[in-house]
Simulated scan of single mutants.
Amino acid sequence: MEYQALSGSAFYLHGAFWVFVAVAIFALIAGRKVMAAIGTMLDTRAKSVSDALAEAAQLKAEAEVILADAKARQAQAMEDAKQILETAHQEAASLAAALAAEAEATAKRRERMAMERIAAAEASAVSEVRAAAIDIATAASAALLRDELGAQGDAALIDRAISGVPGALRA
């Protein structure tokens, strides 16, 4: 048998040509359907990727807004904390000054009370000493008068006291 492709007859008369034509037509028809399905699948995939990118961009924008808001809140919280600390320091300083003034007033009051007690004790001691001195002087005068003066001495003392009264009244 001779190979038909090498024979000199027309190419469209050979079976191989018609098999080639049939395979090419099948490939075109089936290829279009396959290509359409592949194209639809690729379009769907491209749309889902595009939607995912759009959603990611939207989420990124929302995240940036949330981040900016969080940074603003953090800055405000730091400012509030600084103000609270400053106020607390001022209150602590004024409280310390008030406590120091109160402690000083209490110390002065206690010192004054101690001085008053000392003065009262001194006055009491002085009056006790005076009373004791008066008692001793009275007892000594009574003993002196009893022992040394008699009736004559009493009369002389009375006369002297009476004569000294006008001078004492003028003075």
Rank of each mutant, 00 (worst) to 15 (best):
M1D: 08
Y3V: 05
A10M: 08
A10R: 12
A10C: 08
A22F: 08
V34H: 08
L42R: 07
A46F: 08
A46V: 12
L53D: 10
A61M: 03
A63G: 09
E64L: 09
L67R: 15
K71G: 05
A72S: 11
A72N: 06
Q74L: 13
A75I: 07
Q76H: 07
A81V: 00
K82F: 03
Q83V: 06
T87I: 13
A88T: 04
H89T: 12
E91M: 07
E91W: 01
S94I: 03
A97H: 04
A98G: 03
A98S: 10
A100C: 00
A101I: 00
A101R: 09
T106H: 10
A107I: 00
R109I: 07
R110K: 11
M113E: 15
A114Y: 04
A120G: 02
E122P: 00
A125N: 05
V129A: 12
R130Q: 13
A133E: 13
A133P: 02
I134A: 15
I134C: 08
I134H: 12
T138V: 04
A142P: 04
A143K: 13
A143W: 02
L149Y: 05
L149Q: 01
A151Q: 14
D154H: 13
L157G: 02
L157K: 06
L157R: 04
S163A: 15
V165Y: 08
P166E: 06
A168R: 06
R170V: 09
